[in-house]
Amino acid sequence: MKLDFGPVLDNLPFLVAGLQGTLTVSAGAIIVGATVGLGIALLRISPSRPLRFLGGLYVDFIRSVPLLIILVLFVYAVPIVIETMTGHSIRIDALLAGMLGLGLYAAAFLAEVFRSGILAVPSGQREAGLSTGMTNRQVFLRVVLPQAARKIIPPATSSILTLVKDSAVTFAIAVPELMAKAGSLNNGLQRPIEVFIVVAVIYLAVTYPLLLISDRLQRSAAAGS
């Protein structure tokens, strides 16, 4: 068998449109994941036992189940829940479902990144802030969070890389992203090796810089501590 990349390269614009979908679903999922993840992290360090339990349950459950199942469950379960609660039937757009499903999945991992970053700030810092009359909120925003951010950024970058790669799985719930385009292009061309290698290269354009940044950040974080 001879490799022929010609037909695949002829369809490059089609694949690049898929890359746009990948970037869109990833960006949406990052926003959802970071927001929900921070919320879950705050639950997990809250003084209230039931809240800590809820946060822990979310993290433990999501991290124990394959993304594919979370996505499929999300697509089928959410309409039923909304239907039952509001009485209105809804249709969730596939792209939105992808953003939310992937985002809620990533949130569990990001929550742990946030939590350990926050906990890495010595308790004396909180004490110092409170002692000068700051409220808990001020202490968190002005003293703890800026210091936690330095610990959070390296592993969060790595989580974002994982998220972008994981976005490929959203094709299984019909999100119009790169993997889905690759699949349909392959159906037409029947050249799986060429198609998927080209797609891999397109992914690399986004993911390889992320990998380099993430590795560098992790290295300097390790050297700094």
Partner: peptide
């Protein structure tokens, strides 16, 4: 306190 606890940032 013993450990100063200055804000490092």
């Amino acid at each position: 306190s013993q450990h100063f606890n200055l804000y490092p940032h």
